[in-house]
């Protein structure tokens, strides 16, 4: 089932005469996002990733074209609350996403804005804290948490609105590997329970784990497909100055020993099975 539909979306940060001069951050983007997909959005700095993601919950409204979430156009101001309840956003810097002085208050912020009853809010807070494993932090002021805990808290505070879709804009790029894994695992778990996930990232390893990869370049969709397909188009990736996933680069190094195309080994599981196949067939892998 289609969750988000983007038709011929163009967006420019300029207005008035500058707009007519035509510097667009996004140009002619057409996308359809189905429920339950896990999508990675990649592209160089300034390619328009954040601009695209901010259109998904109506933070930005198209200059031209249309974005529809569950059939609701983001141009209709009266639907914004419902759209934002459906699509939850997590940004890069957890520091600027925490607005309260108590962990529970932070998680309750979204539900309170939705005007829910206190009992319902408490229930959702409990649930969101449990899902993200933040129960132990109850009663603490957010600004004294570690960056990783802070980002988990922003995820929890978005989850408390019970969204159908989670949008993450480079959400783990400021975290250390251990915290990154905790956030990734949490998101992955939610995805397995049916959550639609759209995540922009500069990490090709992360993108390789997604079900679908969208490549942006200069505000346009340069490629869109499964990771297998995307990472086999080396020339395009090189032109866009994007690198290959670590696994593919490792596979390249031992290319002549493997019996499959290295492009297909874009994630650790595939690489591992290819290596063990090669080991079985060839005896050793010197």
């Amino acid at each position: 089932m289609e969750l988000i539909r983007i038709d011929d979306l163009s967006y420019s940060y300029e207005s008035g005469p500058a707009l007519r001069a035509g510097r667009y951050a996004l140009r002619g983007v057409d996308l359809s996002i189905r429920k339950g997909q896990y999508i990675a959005v990649i592209g160089a700095n300034g390619s328009g990733k954040s601009t695209l993601l901010k259109h998904l919950n109506g933070l930005l409204v198209p200059t031209e074209g249309e974005v529809r979430v569950s059939g609701m156009s983001t141009k209709d101001k009266t639907l914004l609350k419902e759209i934002r309840r459906t699509v939850g956003m997590v940004f890069q810097n957890p520091e600027t996403q925490l607005v309260t002085t108590l962990v529970e208050d932070e998680v309750a912020f979204g539900p309170e804005n939705l005007g829910l009853e206190p009992e319902e809010i408490t229930e959702r807070v409990e649930w969101a804290m449990a899902v993200t494993g933040l129960r132990a932090l109850q009663g603490r002021p957010p600004h004294l948490l570690s960056t990783g805990q802070k980002q988990l808290l922003t995820v929890a505070s978005v989850l408390a609105m019970r969204p159908d879709c989670l949008v993450l804009d480079e959400a783990t790029s400021m975290l250390d590997p251990a915290s990154r894994k905790r956030v990734d695992d949490t998101v992955r778990r939610l995805h397995n329970d049916g959550m639609t996930v759209i995540a922009s990232t500069h990490s090709m390893d992360e993108a390789a784990e997604a079900g679908r990869v969208i490549v942006l370049a200069g505000g346009e969709v340069a490629a869109d497909g499964e990771p297998r397909e995307i990472f086999s188009r080396r020339r395009i990736l090189r032109e866009l100055r994007l690198e290959l996933p670590t696994t593919v680069r490792i596979a390249d190094l031992v290319k002549n020993r493997l019996f499959v195309e290295t492009e297909r080994l874009f994630n650790p599981r595939l690489l591992a099975s290819a290596v063990s196949d090669a080991y079985r067939k060839g005896g050793t892998l010197r």
Binding site: G88, Q97, N113, P118
Partner: peptide, 26 residues
């Protein structure tokens, strides 16, 4: 710049001011 980011994050969580807002505690 941070102010802009904070505002975006608040808006993403349906904040539009005090109207229609409830409180966790009574």
């Amino acid at each position: 710049r941070h102010a802009e980011a904070i505002a975006e994050s608040m808006e993403s969580r349906c904040y539009t001011g005090g109207r229609g807002r409830t409180s966790r505690l009574r």
